[in-house]
Computed example of a mutant assay.
Amino acid sequence: MTVTVRDLRPGDPPDVEDFARVRHQALPHILWTSASVLHTLARTPPEAWARSLVAEEDGEVIGTAQVMLAHDSPEPGQGMLNIYVHPERTGRGAGALLVRAAEEHLAAHGATKLFAWVLDEPANRAFAERRGYRAGRCAHFLRLDLSRAALPPLPAPPPGVELRTAADFADDPRPLFRLDAETMSDEPGDIDIEFTDYAAWLTQTWEHPLLDRELTTVVVAEGRPVAFSVAFTDGGSRYVTAMTGTARAFRRRGLAKLAKTVALHRARAAGLTDARTGNDTGNAPMLAINRSLGYEICATEVRHVRELV
Rank of each mutant, 00 (worst) to 15 (best):
M1I: 15
R9M: 11
G11P: 03
P14V: 07
E17L: 05
P28N: 00
L31P: 09
W32K: 12
S34P: 15
L53T: 01
E56Q: 13
D58E: 10
G59W: 01
G63V: 08
V67F: 03
A70N: 12
A70S: 15
A70K: 09
S73C: 06
Y84E: 12
R92P: 10
R92E: 12
A94P: 11
A94H: 08
L97I: 10
V99F: 10
R100A: 11
A102T: 15
E104D: 08
A108N: 09
H109Q: 14
A116R: 10
N124K: 12
N124I: 13
R130L: 14
Y133H: 03
A135M: 07
H140M: 09
L146R: 02
L146S: 01
L146Q: 04
S147T: 03
L154D: 00
P158W: 05
V161M: 05
T165G: 05
T165E: 03
D168N: 09
D168P: 07
F169W: 10
D172T: 00
R174T: 08
L176Y: 07
L179S: 03
E182G: 04
E187N: 14
D192M: 15
A199N: 11
T203G: 09
P209H: 05
L211T: 09
T216F: 08
T216D: 01
P225D: 05
S229G: 09
F232Q: 06
G236S: 08
R238E: 03
A247F: 01
G254P: 02
L255E: 05
A259F: 00
V262E: 00
V262P: 00
V262I: 05
L264C: 00
L272K: 11
A275Q: 00
T277N: 02
T277G: 06
R291C: 10
Y295M: 01
E296Q: 14
C298Y: 11
C298T: 13
V302T: 05
V302D: 03
V302M: 03
E307K: 13
